[in-house]
Write a protein that binds this DNA or RNA. Sequence first.
DNA 1: CAGTGGTCTAGACCACTGC
DNA 2: CAGTGGTCTAGACCACTGA
Lengths: 255, 255
Amino acid sequence: MAQPKYHQIAEHLRAQIGSGALAPGQRLPSEPDLAAQHDASRNTVRLAIALLTNQGLVESRQGLGTFVHEPAKPFTALLSRVKTPPDEQHASAGLPVISPAADESEMVRLVVETGLADQDIADKLGIRTGDPIVIRHSQYYIGDVPWQLINSYYPSDLAGGTALQQAGSIEGGSIRMLAELGHPQQGFVDEIGSRMPDGREFAFFHLPTGTPVVVVNRTSYSADRPIRLTSYVYRGDRVRLLHVEGTIPAAYREV
Amino acid sequence: MAQPKYHQIAEHLRAQIGSGALAPGQRLPSEPDLAAQHDASRNTVRLAIALLTNQGLVESRQGLGTFVHEPAKPFTALLSRVKTPPDEQHASAGLPVISPAADESEMVRLVVETGLADQDIADKLGIRTGDPIVIRHSQYYIGDVPWQLINSYYPSDLAGGTALQQAGSIEGGSIRMLAELGHPQQGFVDEIGSRMPDGREFAFFHLPTGTPVVVVNRTSYSADRPIRLTSYVYRGDRVRLLHVEGTIPAAYREV
DNA sequence: CAGTGGTCTAGACCACTGC
DNA sequence: CAGTGGTCTAGACCACTGA
């Protein structure tokens, strides 16, 4: 046997999906049917389906069947601020969404707490491990689609005792609030990565197994020190981050 | 039974990994041992391990055992060119690597072919679906670590008959070559996303299951048209993309 | 060689869905 | 209700590793 049987079954199904014989949204043959077709046990068929599931190709729903995954149309978010002046940005809404037709994202939950910086956060905020910080967690939807999780970390000596430590959204955004506190943002550094979701992310995004998340860690600086660390978390298959540099011919802008 | 047994077993192992009772690199108890401990069948234990594997927490090796995944130390690559003037960039080496200690990446394989643009490529290159294009695939290592896959697409009316259509690396980089051909780059747009790897990526990166890839699609423009589309593919757990904007206090640069 | 994970079977019962 | 996937068992044999 050159390839294990469950790989062969997966390959057979993958081919049908690729060729369009099984279109997005369509139901696969049932597990007993596939077992009969390939002269295999049902468990072997399930192994094959697990392969496809973990590649994000299909999705099973109990009582209904296994379906070819419908590719999500991603939203595009901007890393740079060149196209959206800070004043026009929605308060605390995270990276500006430019397409499709930027419906404003809506915050549905906000948790504020205080804690101690772990090493990673301390390094980025330029404080010591164990120093107190203010943490703001929030969740955003676009319409009824879960859009992003935002976790912001502030050094307590900046945010302690201010509105940042109160639950409730910040009028005009936390960057403006920090500016009013005497710490205007002069620049930021984004660190972009990808990983598999943890349990909290899995639940919030209703993730099918086999879908990674994209994380943008943005460290904001005033003229002399870091003032905020914000982590934006997105579904990998629903976000495209855009970064523009130099001059783009007019005909190709806003693609 | 509140939770399925294999979730409970996975949870038990996850807790031990999180608490450090099972340190990175350490071997888990064998499947028969775990089965006995939890009064479960070996298949149920394997389901639990599959959960952890798909989250990138553990990795199994036949004949040896199942091991807690050692977190890879990611390389950091720059999206912007502010820190590295084009002249200092290594030819065709992709996004500049700035840490750890930028060893130059090394190209080991290059395939050049011609093909027809599919809709996505045609849209981005501003040509029509089915128009001829020149495609250059290459693979890069840093030391003996697989680092990136690069796929570049050029409209044939720009690249046809030039050195870009020959196998062999381009002295000074393809952007310089395009400039000499009368199409100097004036700007570019990066579109960054993440997904699960395909078979080719899986093999090249020696990916454990449960590791996504990060894709940067960079469309380069001259003053009046797109001149190149390049897709950079990285292991999600080995890359951090850096994007800098505004002014960063001197003490925090090059972190 | 003994011990590990990899593949596979043939069943069983449960939980959920739509009719 | 019948049909779907979800969970679980108790075995079997194979392929690989290190001693």
